[in-house]
Simulated scan of single mutants.
Amino acid sequence: MFKINDHVVYQSSGVYKIVDIRKEKDFNKNDTEYYVMEPVFNNNLTTKIPVNNKKVMMRNVITKDEALALITSMPEEETVWLNNNRERSGNFKEALKSGKTEEWARIIKTIYLHKQERNELGKTIMKSDEDAMENAEKILNQELAVALNILPEEVPAFIKERLKDTD
C-alpha cells in the first residue's frame, strides 16, 4: 500500500504524488478507500483511484540508484523494431502500458535510431511511431526527473552528460 506523499507512476500517464487516502462511498454505496493523486508536473488534474484496484498499473518511482543504472545500461539496450506496422504499434502500446522503465527506454532508442535512418534517406517516420516515442519520453523523463531531483526537460542533457562520462 502506498502512503501520502509517495510518488508513483500511474498507468502510462506519468508521475503522480499521493496527496490523500480517504474513504468514500463507491457506486454501490460501499465504503471504499481511495488514493487521491495529483500529477507532479502539471497540477491541473486530481485523480482518485480505489486502493484495492488491481486493474491499473501503479508502482513506486524508481530510486536514484536505479535511475543511474538504467541510464548506464541504455547504450547496450537492444532495439525492438518490427517491420509490420500493426505488430510494431501493438508492441509499443504494450511496452508503454507495462510500466517498465527499461521498456520505455527501449522504445525511445528503437524509434530514435529508425528516425535517424529515415532522415538520412530524406524521409519521415510514421505518426504512430512518433507518438509512441513522445509518450515513452514523457513518462520516462518524468520518472527520471523525480528520481534524480531535476526537471523533466533537464533529463535528456543529464543522460547525454552521464553517458559521455562513461565512454
Rank of each mutant, 00 (worst) to 15 (best):
F2Q: 05
N5L: 14
V9M: 09
Q11I: 00
S12K: 11
V15C: 10
V15P: 01
Y16I: 05
K17D: 12
I18T: 11
E24H: 10
D26H: 06
D26I: 08
Y34T: 11
Y35K: 11
F41W: 11
T46Y: 08
V51M: 12
N52A: 12
N52I: 07
N52L: 10
N53E: 04
K55A: 08
V56N: 00
V56D: 00
M58S: 00
N60A: 09
E66A: 15
A67P: 01
L68T: 14
T72F: 08
S73P: 00
E76Y: 10
E78A: 13
E78H: 07
T79D: 03
W81D: 07
R86Q: 14
E87M: 11
R88I: 07
S89G: 14
A95Y: 13
S98M: 03
E103I: 12
A105L: 02
I107T: 01
I111A: 08
I111C: 07
E117I: 06
N119A: 12
I125K: 02
I125S: 04
M126W: 00
D129R: 07
D129E: 15
D129G: 09
D131R: 13
A132G: 05
A132R: 03
M133L: 14
N135F: 13
K138Q: 13
N141D: 14
N141Q: 11
V146H: 00
L151N: 15
P152A: 09
P156F: 04
L163H: 02
K164M: 06
K164G: 05
D165R: 05
D165E: 13
